[in-house]
Design a protein around this nucleic acid. Structure first.
Lengths: 144, 144
DNA sequence: GACGATTAAATCGTACACGATTTTTCTATC
DNA sequence: GATAGAAAAATCGTGTACGATTTAATCGTC
């Protein structure tokens, strides 16, 4: 017998991820950020000057996804893309002052968002850990 | 202070959903299906002759996403798209014999997949329920 | 039975996502 | 120091996603 999407874990994950993004949208829209751009910004705010590859590993995306996204963020004036002088194969990403300002504004979003979920902080952490565990089992993280 | 993506629930959800899709890919690729197409096929296998709007509600997608996807599935010979004679605004989707055959083949995937996760059946159900609960809180389901 | 409001899909534009390939640079070994 | 192979981004093609709008059909009310 065929399993209906409503009963499938994969669909629960798929649809909840979409619901999460659409819940973030109204918070990000005033800042002019898309959701993946917000992730890149947060990653760079934590450690500036990372390479494309390092961001790709952190966000589990491919360079073919990141390159155009980063170009849009560069065009928006939030970051600079520069070849590493020691290894010209790599491109380093540095936040501009505007990028840092934006990151500060974006920093308040997760807390504002947590309220929307109706989950306690410990529920949120538990769920996160379960998901990360499942994810790393499905797709082992690449070594740094 | 900025929260790093690695610590955020939203990123756990985002990256796990991607990992799930990429884990399904090798199982779907031999059938020529993409992941959202597989969801549509499963939904129709459970109840044939649904309208675009009903599938959209079930999968929580918009018609602007489904229309081109359904046209590709029609072009592949898996389903027929026909205006409802009683209400010409609606489009009804019916699996072809090829579509039914494909659905039968696809039906074995979730079980084959469950093994990959390393989770017990009850862990899977628990996680699914937690996610569905969160999803419906973030984005209440539209009435049928 | 006319007609404005509502509804269901479709269309349009923009932004991911990723497999496959290409380009450029670096590294290892001769 | 030439060169084969590896590594890092970028390019290309296809397929989602979705906001905003449009088109076509139906409904509600007079």
């Amino acid at each position: 017998m065929t399993l209906a999407p409503a009963d499938m874990l994969c669909f629960a994950l798929y649809s909840t991820a979409h619901a999460m993004q659409s819940a973030y949208a109204p918070l990000l829209e005033p800042l002019g950020l898309t959701y993946p751009q917000y992730l890149v910004l947060s990653a760079l705010a934590g450690e500036d000057g990372q390479t494309v590859g390092r961001i790709a590993a952190a966000l589990r995306l491919e360079s073919n996804t990141l390159t155009p996204l980063l170009k849009r963020m560069e065009a928006a004036g939030w970051l600079a893309r520069r070849r590493d002088s020691a290894d010209e194969r790599q491109v380093r990403l540095t936040l501009t002052p505007e990028g840092h300002t934006l990151a500060r504004q974006a920093a308040s979003i997760p807390a504002a968002f947590a309220a929307k979920t109706g989950l306690s902080l410990s529920d949120i952490h538990d769920l996160r850990d379960i998901l990360v565990d499942l994810r790393d089992r499905l797709k082992p993280p690449v070594r740094d």
